[in-house]
């Protein structure tokens, strides 16, 4: 294990990937708590598929992938949230429509241009390789923005997540905070897609929150625990990916699943002992 870790830190590209990944896992964990509790988990999955479509088009036309997909996914986040808030449309169905359509668009563009090559495969399933310097800058700036905004508006985010009607009645602009959460999520998803893969990034949003909720029953506890387990799972996942030459995204999801199961069992036995007493 120590050997693997030693080797892990000896490569520049891995240090870059670790830096970006830790920041991304931290951000997705924080935002994920609100998204899962508000029943908006599907927005994350929808956005990542839209992001994939945008990436594919950017690759085909030789644009910088992040510069095209960040605005596209931000705009989609805006509309997805609008759909979710509109009770007349069944929002889960609408999100599924949008995400499969963008996936289809992406796949068609890829087959007409480059074909399924390793680059495309990397965008779908994630890689720790080739996180370029400019990607690192964009990722770090995005992640720090998300963290700062989250900490500043923590109390408002809690209030809007727990009870939107009460928050509105108390004069908090719930629509604004919902939009803020959706836009920050969009930003984090695009930035994390290279590393995690478009198909798997939404797990970073859902797993840590669900895992933390098995054990903690305060909002602050859940947020902190989600952040810690997310970063931990990412780190172990990268090590597994490096040692066993499996794709980064899939390895990280596997570790997340293992941690979830562990917490699930722990949560059950904790509740048992509480009842017994």
């Amino acid at each position: 294990m120590l050997e693997i870790l030693g080797e892990l830190f000896s490569h520049n590209f891995i240090i870059r990937a670790l830096l970006v990944g830790i920041l991304i896992s931290l951000c997705t964990a924080l935002l994920g708590v609100s998204l899962v509790l508000k029943r908006y988990s599907m927005i994350g999955a929808g956005l990542s598929h839209v992001g994939f479509g945008a990436m594919a088009i950017a690759l085909a036309f030789n644009f910088a992938p992040l510069k095209l997909s960040i605005p596209v996914v931000l705009i989609s986040a805006f509309f997805l949230l609008r759909i979710s808030e509109n009770s007349r449309i069944k929002s889960d169905a609408a999100i599924a429509l949008i995400s499969s359509s963008s996936l289809a668009a992406g796949v068609m563009v890829i087959y007409r241009s480059t074909g399924i090559n390793t680059d495309v495969c990397n965008y779908m399933f994630g890689t720790i390789l080739t996180t370029s310097k400019s990607d690192v800058y964009i990722s770090v700036i995005s992640a720090i923005t998300v963290l700062a905004v989250y900490i500043i508006f923590y109390n408002k985010i809690f209030a809007v997540t727990f009870d939107e009607t009460f928050a509105k009645a108390a004069g908090s602009n719930a629509g604004f905070y919902n939009m803020l959460i959706a836009l920050l999520t969009a930003l984090v998803i695009v930035v994390g897609m290279r590393l995690m893969g478009a198909m798997l990034i939404s797990s970073l949003i859902i797993f840590p929150a669900l895992t933390a909720m098995r054990i903690f029953s305060s909002f602050r506890g859940v947020v902190i625990c989600a952040a810690v387990t997310s970063v931990f799972s990412f780190f172990i996942g990268i090590a597994v990916s490096f040692a066993s030459e499996t794709p980064a995204g899939a390895s990280i999801v596997a570790v997340n699943l293992a941690v979830f199961i562990l917490f699930y069992i722990l949560g059950l036995s904790l509740r048992r002992t509480r009842w017994a007493n």
Binding site: L37, N155, F158, A167, S218, F219
Partner: peptide, 25 residues
């Protein structure tokens, strides 16, 4: 304001203190 309780609140992880304090928002 005391609204009707929502489905979301039934299994929401929050302490009594966190919820009470949010009344001061």
């Amino acid at each position: 304001y005391l609204p009707q309780q929502t489905v979301v609140q039934k299994d929401f992880p929050a302490t009594v203190w966190e919820i009470t304090l949010s009344g001061c928002q």
